[in-house]
Design a protein around this nucleic acid. Structure first.
Lengths: 161, 161
DNA sequence: TGATTTGCAACAACATAAGTTGCGTGAGGT
DNA sequence: ACCTCACGCAACTTATGTTGTTGCAAATCA
């Protein structure tokens, strides 16, 4: 009998982390006050300054942050964290597809395919609605205040670079 | 003033259509009766026979279909459509990540990142739970019976190759 | 003028589903 | 026996989107 190989781990669709990263940045900016450069943010997130600008540009277009060029420039928060919801940020980063699985449109006329897609769409729409409703109900200030009282023991700096 | 270019459409994360395709195939098999070859299925879905085998292999391992080699071989449904739920098929195709957006783990120690990820996880888990519960409650027979009475006008063949 | 910092375009790196090719294996039919 | 059909599997290619990287232009301030 052939040796049964260990089943290879299922590969998962890669996930878009822009929402998570932007939330992280915005809360830092809200707590930090003043402005931060893309460089600083990039070091904070162990990422690339250009990627930061690219992603933040959506937030700028939505009016949540402002960017200033030149010496002393950088990014500043326009609204307080209390007035920014997860939904705002989600939309500002491009409102990406929430779901990694979706319908196929192989046979446009087939009633079976249509029934499958209609069923899936119903379920996914319901889940998305729930998701967006929850997003709309959570402000960044809620998140910022959700972790246990910070141990302000001096050296315990958050996010040490 | 520079000409303002038309804002480029936001690119969306590509979606995994295996679940949709397998549902489509299984319902066809259930209605068709007997066996179908990968070739036939592939033509039906405008896809590749090897891709079909690859995806169907998950269903075979889960015991929902059986494959037979050689002349007259092909794929046959083991259970009736009434005893197959969306959840079964979802799991059999590899239980892929439902969501295209997810957390980033850039600064493992940062309490802000942890709070962001905990919040996102809570919301996503809730939505996923809803999704899977719905999946568990829908059989393929439900889908197959969900479209309006087929107009059996003779030439109106479903899914003409 | 020179240093700083964003804006933007172009390209490479990476990951994953889907497509493709080739060969092996087994089941019938002749 | 031989041939054909059909799945099994491995390796490679293609397509697509996020992230990473480089280079240069433009704006701001000392």
């Amino acid at each position: 009998m052939p040796v049964r190989l260990i089943k290879e781990g299922i590969k998962k669709m890669r996930q878009d982390s822009r929402l998570s990263r932007m939330l992280h940045v915005l809360i830092h900016m809200g707590k930090h006050g003043g402005s931060m450069t893309s460089e600083t943010i990039a070091r904070m997130l162990d990422a690339n300054p250009v990627v930061i600008r690219r992603t933040m540009s959506g937030l700028r277009e939505s009016g949540y942050v402002r960017s200033e060029k030149g010496h002393g420039g950088g990014w500043t928060l326009v609204r307080p964290l209390e007035e920014l919801t997860l939904l705002d940020v989600y939309r500002a980063v491009g409102e990406p597809s929430v779901f990694a699985v979706g319908p196929a449109y192989d046979m446009p006329g087939c009633p079976i395919e249509q029934a499958v897609n209609a069923t899936l769409k119903g379920v996914f729409d319901e889940a998305e609605q729930l998701l967006l409703n929850r997003f709309a109900g959570v402000t960044l200030a809620d998140i910022a205040g959700s972790f246990p009282p910070v141990i302000d023991a001096g050296k315990g700096e958050h996010c040490a670079s």
